[in-house]
């Protein structure tokens, strides 16, 4: 597609993908916050679960990165 209108739509779409990053941030914060809440209740069990924490954060974050990828594709590849 060419033209001003197509570019307009493209930029609007790219802007909308930024919401995806925001929601991913909510997800990561949720994981970290719940981990902290659990860790404060039972600090002795917290050390063994750091790996799980990172895996959870990675999964939550990956979806935000996907929205970033969509933005990049819209900007550069479409």
């Amino acid at each position: 597609m060419e033209g001003e209108l197509a570019n307009l739509g493209k930029y609007i779409g790219v802007g909308l993908t930024a919401f995806g990053m925001g929601f991913a941030a909510l997800g990561v914060g949720n994981v970290a916050g719940n981990f902290l809440a659990g860790a404060l209740r039972n600090p002795s069990a917290a050390a063994g679960q750091t790996a799980t924490l990172f895996i959870g954060m990675a999964f939550a974050e990956a979806l935000g990165i996907f929205s970033f990828l969509v933005a990049l594709l819209l900007m550069f590849a479409v």
């Binding site: 990675a58 999964f59 974050e61 990956a62 990165i65 996907f66 970033f68 990828l69 990049l72």
Partner: peptide, 13 residues
């Protein structure tokens, strides 16, 4: 897909 894009995406961003 997620493994590669997570890493590359983080670095690019």
């Amino acid at each position: 897909l997620s493994l590669s894009i997570r890493l590359a995406g983080n670095m690019i961003a």
